[in-house]
């Protein structure tokens, strides 16, 4: 039961042209322009000290955001999926909230709290603590925009697997950590990995929110995406694309890992379904 070959060909071609124009051509453009002036220029752009410090800050932001969001995701999904309490629906909606907020607003709320004229601005200035236009601000903004990634993968997964296995472990004498480590975690490991991959990609690639709070101080508060912007605005296109190619490479690795995890988890789901 399918369409005529002509219709099929037309649909496939339309899909390919659309994806080609919007995805593949820009993707190719990044790498073409990155190597426009040869390998030496490419490497020079990446090895530049400001680029290095941007890489370091990006890694730092991800290194803080991913573990914290993993801890949060595990805690939230355990509470939501294994227990009954009032306001559960509201809690789930609140967890998704950062997805609905514009990145610019996500950055701005921290400026309003911690900025010079913000609620805590004066107090922070008196104690010589800098959050906005400094590294802590970059990390806070990253935390906000990556907040839901792990939790929203784990909650439906844990809800679907129910709590019978955990109860069985309890009856057999297992303690809380034993249940979590030996029963719950192995059951959600693919979903957790999936959430981590997405969370990491967003943490390293966030632009809008970080742009608001960073202050664009070269060598200090610039992340990789911000560094790309500065280079681009200085009309140093080749260097901008060279740095962008690193992020693009990261995105491609993310996609590969993601489809690998999807295949793995589909297989283990099929096992569970037949089980």
């Amino acid at each position: 039961m399918t369409e005529s070959p002509l219709v099929r060909l037309f649909v496939i071609l339309a899909a390919l042209v659309f994806l080609g124009l919007f995805l593949i051509v820009p993707l190719v453009a990044v790498f073409t322009q990155a190597f426009e002036k040869g390998l030496a220029a490419y490497l020079a752009a990446i090895r530049e000290p400001d680029a290095w410090s941007a890489i370091r800050l990006t890694l730092l932001a991800a290194a803080v955001a991913v573990p914290l969001n993993v801890a949060f995701g595990l805690a939230a999904s355990w509470a939501v999926a294994k227990f009954e309490f009032r306001g559960k629906g509201l809690l789930s909606t609140l967890i998704d909230l950062p997805f609905a907020v514009s990145p610019v607003i996500a950055g701005m709320i921290f400026v309003i709290l911690f900025g010079r004229t913000g609620f805590l601005g004066e107090w922070l200035a008196r104690h010589d603590v800098r959050i906005i236009f400094a590294v802590p601000g970059v990390i806070l903004a990253t935390l906000f925009v990556t907040f839901p990634f792990v939790a929203r993968e784990l909650i439906p997964l844990m809800q679907a697997s129910g709590k019978e296995e955990e109860e069985a472990a309890r009856v057999l004498g297992a303690g809380g950590w034993q249940i979590f480590r030996r029963v719950t975690l192995p059951n959600v490991k693919w979903g957790l990995l999936y959430g981590i991959i997405l969370c990491n990609a967003r943490a390293m690639g966030e632009f809008g929110a970080v742009s608001v709070v960073s202050g664009h101080i070269r060598g200090r508060t610039n992340t990789l995406p911000l560094h790309v912007e500065i280079l681009y605005n200085e009309y140093n296109f080749q260097a901008a694309f060279a740095v962008a190619s690193l992020l693009t490479f990261l995105a491609l690795v993310t996609l590969i890992l993601k489809s690998w995890v999807e295949r793995k988890s589909r297989r283990s789901e099929a096992d569970a379904a037949s089980g």
Binding site: L198, F207, G208, L224, P225, V228, E229, T248, T254
Partner: peptide
């Protein structure tokens, strides 16, 4: 890709 690629890029 649009989920994975940083928006600035």
């Amino acid at each position: 890709l649009p989920f994975a690629l940083p928006t600035a890029v």
